[in-house]
């Protein structure tokens, strides 16, 4: 599904990603962990098409297409979804209208008929039950005055509505209490199937208690320095990121 080769990216002269290699297949869940500033969120942003990053080297292939050549909206239409670490508040924009526009844009791209009001409402009801979100949130302006947990739940709801092939979750667990994490994780588990894949960017191991990853990658200083199974996450939790820093002796920057 997704092949990242030797990806280098940064902002202005600052290099953040310094050669990422990663292969994600349909049906898999990958977790990316790492200390603050290691480049985890940058990787998520670059995959979703955030424009303030400059790609200096490497390639990203998604279903055989060059992902980096695509606009953010085309990536979304092709099935890439980014659950934001900090979802944007937009006063004056109805959450429901926004999601309806979004769903229908993606349907249009796929050559499907737009959903009418009834069809949309039916889909919404179904997914609301799935991710356990309240109607009252969705009738408010987009994320305006939502708590941290409500914003994250709204992200998962949008993910359920858009049914992406590749869901990138950027620190979806940050700022959530343990109950909220469980709700979010359960929703993600319900949305998993053999045709889609999830890339979880997280700082802590605890989300991985609920969403069991097939692979865990540790990022440090712009590179994936260690990959393994879910046990790697437990080891990290126990020993802290320092052990990674000691274990990998990185070449000095030129």
């Amino acid at each position: 599904m997704l092949t990242i080769k030797n990806l280098h990216a940064g902002i202005e002269t600052k290099k953040i990603l310094k050669g990422i290699d990663l292969e994600i297949k349909a049906g898999e869940v990958h977790a990316i962990m790492g200390p603050n500033g290691s480049g985890k969120s940058t990787l998520a942003s670059v995959l979703a098409g955030r424009e303030n990053y400059e790609i200096t080297e490497g390639s990203v292939t998604y279903f055989g297409k060059d992902l980096l050549e695509m606009s953010p909206e085309d990536r979304a239409r092709e099935g890439v979804f980014l659950a934001f670490q900090y979802p944007v508040e937009i006063p004056g924009l109805s959450t429901t209208n926004f999601i309806k526009t979004s769903v229908n844009e993606i349907r249009k791209y796929r050559g499907e008929e737009p959903l009418d009001a009834v069809g949309f409402l039916r889909l919404m009801k179904e997914k609301m039950a799935l991710v356990n979100i309240d109607q009252s949130l969705l009738s408010r302006p987009l994320n305006e005055g939502f708590s941290g947990g409500e914003k994250k739940r709204n992200e998962i709801f949008q993910m359920a509505m858009l049914q992406p092939k590749l869901a990138i979750m950027d620190e979806t667990d940050s700022g959530l209490d343990i109950d909220a994490i469980r709700i979010v994780a359960n929703s993600v588990n319900k949305l998993r199937n053999k045709d889609n894949a999830v890339l979880l960017v997280t700082h802590y191991q605890r989300l991985l208690d609920y969403i069991i990853p097939d692979f865990v990658h540790v990022m440090y200083n712009g590179r994936i320095v260690k990959s393994g199974s879910k046990e790697l996450a437990l080891e990290l939790e126990e020993k802290g990121y320092d052990f990674i820093k000691h274990e990998v002796s990185l070449p000095e920057e030129a």
């Binding site: 979703a48 098409g49 955030r50 424009e51 606009s71 953010p72 909206e73 990536r75 979304a76 239409r77 979804f81 980014l82 934001f84 979802p87 944007v88 937009i90 006063p91 004056g92 924009l93 926004f98 999601i99 526009t101 979004s102 844009e105 993606i106 791209y109 302006p141 987009l142 949008q158 858009l162």
Partner: peptide, 24 residues
């Protein structure tokens, strides 16, 4: 970027944001 990452074109995203701005 948020709106575009949900499949809206740049022009659509601009229009929606401006209409949201005018809403109050």
């Amino acid at each position: 970027f948020y709106l575009r990452s949900r499949g809206l074109s740049l022009d659509q995203a601009r229009s929606l944001l401006l209409q949201a701005f005018a809403m109050d």
